[in-house]
Design a protein around this nucleic acid. Structure first.
Lengths: 200, 200
DNA sequence: GTACATTTATAACCATGGTCATTTTATCAG
DNA sequence: CTGATAAAATGACCATGGTTATAAATGTAC
């Protein structure tokens, strides 16, 4: 007996329909502005049915992201296969990261901003604090160039971004308990690499 | 006539009480597990009163974070005042960042994780995708060391972290429309600094 | 077909974040 | 003190994400 019965087919179809409708609505009206009833209405099922397929509203986004990540990993393998130089491989990774997000900017924004990027934009909190810190760093970097401590062939703005992003990332790693050392040590260890790239 | 009337004093007191109660409950039971009624009950005011002082539940966290950022900025200025070397200044920044977060780990976790760090932990989504990517990068880096393209005196793990965090950070900047160039170009520009730090 | 089992759909229901019209309280002019 | 005005407190109310008990549909055995 075929296990892919009508039931299974219907199930897959419904899930797909819900997923598609949700996606369209999210992109059209935004994540927060789309209610679960909007979605189920569009598919013409009862509200409760949604939860037979996705445990939460957010789960639709995660599912979306999973698919993208899977795609990306596959592309990554192909992309890197024939490249010999490690430097070129690294650039290849970043080019792929760039391309995939540029191609589907709307999707990226949806997954990244709605669910998550509160990190940058809210934690910051009004993006201003972040900019204020950044200017401190930029000043130090510019000063260092002037004093002949640092090279002149890098963009201070970008270097400051690097330090800030490293800081946040390390902070999260540390908070999640995925570091062996103190936060300070972890920060200092990572900034050394940046330092090596900007020092004369 | 004194503008700091009884009314003003009471207002400040109530706000402070709500803030304090919220904070305690957040730390005690977690952000999501604390309802607004929990908070107002603890302060012994009506639920609606909460919203006279904070527009949303999240706002309490933002307020918390603002205070910390203000403190940090002040300390930053002092810390950097007498340091001459730019390199030392950068290290000084990071040491301060480390110290302030270590001192109040609970608070940091609250502000960063509850509201936001879905970035890392959910977008990732199960942290696994992130680790999988990372291992690709680590491999490339190790390979580069072996092939004599890269220096041996940096930690590949940390360098991979650097690249990943740079990627996410740039992605957010770009999505927020704060970049002039294509995402790919922005990524490549920033990775150059890292590259300079790891190449032989 | 009928009887039974399992899966899926449904809508009533709940919890909670947030709104709002109304009431209470504080301030002040006379 | 009194009445008028402004500010703040209140709790009923709403919207929506999520739960659950029940009904319907599908599959299986005979």
């Amino acid at each position: 007996m075929d296990k892919i019965s009508r039931r299974e087919r219907k199930k897959a179809k419904t899930r797909e329909a819900i997923y598609k409708a949700a996606l369209e609505l999210f992109i059209e009206k935004g994540y927060n502005e789309t209610t679960i009833e909007d979605i189920t209405e569009k598919v013409d099922v009862a509200k409760g049915t949604f939860f037979n397929y996705f445990p939460t509203k957010e789960a639709v986004l995660f599912y979306m992201n999973e698919q993208r990540v899977a795609l990306l990993e596959e592309m990554l393998k192909k992309e890197l296969k024939d490249v010999k130089s490690s430097e070129e491989k690294l650039y290849g990774c970043l080019k792929l990261f760039g391309r995939i997000n540029e191609d589907e900017k709307e999707l990226t924004a949806l997954v990244l901003m709605e669910t998550s990027s509160k990190m940058m934009s809210k934690m910051a909190p009004d993006v201003l604090a972040q900019i204020r810190w950044k200017s401190v760093l930029v000043n130090v970097l510019e000063e260092g160039k002037h004093q002949g401590e640092f090279r002149h062939d890098f963009n201070s703005d970008h270097a400051a971004d690097l330090i800030i992003s490293m800081y946040f990332f390390t902070l999260v790693l540390w908070l999640e308990g995925r570091c062996k050392n103190s936060l300070t040590d972890e920060l200092l260890a990572r900034v050394e690499i940046i330092m090596a790239g900007i020092k004369l």
